[in-house]
Nucleic acid binder design. Structure first.
Lengths: 235, 235
DNA sequence: ATAATGTAAATTGTTGACAATCTACAATTT
DNA sequence: AAATTGTAGATTGTCAACAATTTACATTAT
């Protein structure tokens, strides 16, 4: 070992078991392997992952804070079932956060950042030529994530991460993927252009009014017809 | 017992011990009883609160997610020490979130909501006549919280709650309370007026550009002079 | 003396066992 | 028969002991 390198260049994963368990469960929830409403038995999970119940418990707590799991005292945990109201909350929140991220990124623009954005945009354009919605969604999320990363705002990134996960879960559970690919691509082109040009006001406005209108209209219809159901008594 | 009442009117506190422990520690952190940088020994806390280490551990995890405590693997937890960069993140995030909350509240205005806002505003005006900054800050936070509650957006409220706590911690640790009481009151009057009149665009803009300029200038000065220090190597 | 090495104490990470609570179903009462 | 009560099983909440890792300090080598 050379003493000159104070820390190993690759910081090695100090991920404790509970974090790893949370990662596994998170993936399973977002993959749909654990469907919304599924009961999450601590004993069952601990046997399946070969971990103690305490460790599983800690993992579940993380997912509760991420909004992917809901807990009822002495009754256990289930995968969250997102309603149309939840979808409305998620999209309004995301657009607002993305408005800030777009403004900040536009305000501190550099050529290097512009390249990253352009690359992500080209990926989306490329993928959007085919009809693979899974791939389109991936490229879409990837571009959005890039914008947030470039904003250099730790809390904003964290917050978006949580919102994005829930949106992905909602999309997966409702098959609610918007229709017009051309419109989608066009909006993203305009957004990236505004950000790269450093125009903070337009960039923010573009992000805030981003897409989602199509989705939102659908959601609102569902909301009005489902407004009578009680969700808290369900369990 | 009468069978007609399906649930007890007062839902009784189902607060488990770890949640209660988190509440106690949160209060102590925000009170300043546990100063930023303080080491949080699990054994010490478990003896002081008469709880097991596992329960304390769960409480600490909550506070980590709230951003009040930071954890280093196998090295323990400390109360977070917020930097000027953190303050910048908190204020930009808060203003953005409050912009959304103001817009939503303005968009769904009712006389009953207007009364709540006016009441909170009058409290602030009343308190601002004296020089008690503790009381002013309390009324200030109270008014902001009212706006978020009226927005009827669960995730937005949750998010604000976390941001507010960290701002309170920052203010307490830096004694960074702005100066001009008159300006403060005037801004809040205008904001409430815009919200109550249902003017969504102005309400949002008022909230986004809210105050904090004075604070931000101070913070930026600190940022530039402290930009050389490394904070992650500290521990 | 300085730097490297090795051990002991302290602290965190993990586990398995015990207590409290809920759910389902049978027994009892009106 | 319907509603209430009581008991058994399952599940979650809490605790105390064990294992892994870090830190501090003494020892040794250069």
């Amino acid at each position: 070992m050379n003493a000159k390198e104070k820390r190993s260049p690759v910081p090695i994963i100090p991920r404790s078991l509970d974090v790893q368990a949370a990662d596994v469960l998170r993936d399973e929830i977002l993959d749909g392997a654990l469907a919304p409403g599924s009961r999450l038995l601590e004993i069952e999970l601990s046997e399946r992952l070969n971990l103690s119940r305490g460790t599983i418990r800690s993992a579940l707590q993380q997912l509760i804070y991420e909004g992917l799991v809901v807990q009822f005292p002495y009754r256990g945990c289930t995968v969250v079932g997102l309603t149309a109201q939840d979808a409305w909350e998620l999209y309004t929140l995301r657009n607002t956060l993305e408005g800030l991220a777009s403004r900040l990124t536009a305000a501190a623009m550099t050529p290097a950042k512009a390249i990253l954005l352009e690359t992500a945009l080209q990926d989306l354009i490329q993928v959007a030529q085919a009809d693979d919605w899974q791939a389109i969604a991936h490229a879409d999320f990837s571009l959005h994530k890039t914008i947030f990363q470039l904003s250099d705002h730790r809390r904003l990134q964290q917050q978006y991460q949580i919102v994005e996960q829930q949106i992905r879960l909602y999309i997966a559970s409702c098959n609610a993927l918007q229709a017009d690919r051309h419109e989608l691509v066009e909006q993203h082109i305009q957004l990236v252009k505004a950000i790269c040009s450093g125009d903070t006001a337009i960039a923010e406005e573009m992000a805030k009014s981003h897409n989602t209108e199509g989705q939102l209209l659908i959601q609102h219809l569902k909301t009005s017809e489902k407004s009578l159901e009680k969700s808290s008594e369900k369990f």
